[in-house]
Amino acid sequence: MNARAGWRHSLAMYGKLVRMSLKAQLQYRTSLYLSVAGQFAISVVEFAGMLALFSRFGEFRGWSLAQTAFLYGLVNMAFPVADAISWGFDSMGQLVRTGNFDRLLVRPLSPVLQLFGMELTVRRIGRLAQGMLAFGVACVLLARSPDSFAYSFADRPLAALAAVVSLSAGFAACVSVFTSLFWIRAAFTFVTVEGLEAVNALTYGGQQAAGYPLSAYRKFLQLFFLAAVPVGAVIYLPACFALGKPGIPGLPAWSLALGPLAAIPFAFLARALWSAGLRRYASGGG
């Protein structure tokens, strides 16, 4: 099989695996509808909580409600997407403990692809709705006050285009960073199935942290989310570029648009850890 046919086969298999998982999830319709509806309701409440804080404090470190909700919405859309596609990684602990991971290895398909295809979690739509709600409100508010954006297509088309591209790439990069985190967590299950909760600090913690402007945090935490686990770098910096915020003082504005690139080395790191874990598993060190 040549490389291209291999890719096409992999992609087709991913599609089929996802279809299976959707079919399986529809077996528990009541539970599914309840989760989605419930999650959506609670999303509205949480967003209302944010509105309440804005009405009390007026602004957030110089960011208006519209601007903050814009960032918050992007992150809270990216996280559930990543969470939904990487549910298989989430269940690695159980797969390794019960020995069911072996059955993935006796099939002629990459185990990573099989894990990705294990479940596309529909339940996360409820969470996604929260991000969409915030993002939608932000877009409406921002449309009413066009000067919230640093560049307009009329005045500086190139910069405005760069902002759009950077933000779109930032969204994808944000999904990628969260997915990498789930992947890293899965790699750890080859070493230990205990104590994985610690990685939640990075996944759920990262979601929470990146939903607000990074300038909210003390230096060490900012640095952490810019360089170590770049959930901040990939989405906060493009948002700063688009909204005309300083981002990282001292850096030229255009460089902020490059933030999404940080997702690439992080994905490689995740892949390297996973391969190391898989080698360890195959050598029976588990």
Partner: peptide, 10 residues
């Protein structure tokens, strides 16, 4: 069982 996961999440 059919609704347990949903209720837990909510």
């Amino acid at each position: 069982q059919v609704s347990a996961a949903g209720i837990t999440a909510i």
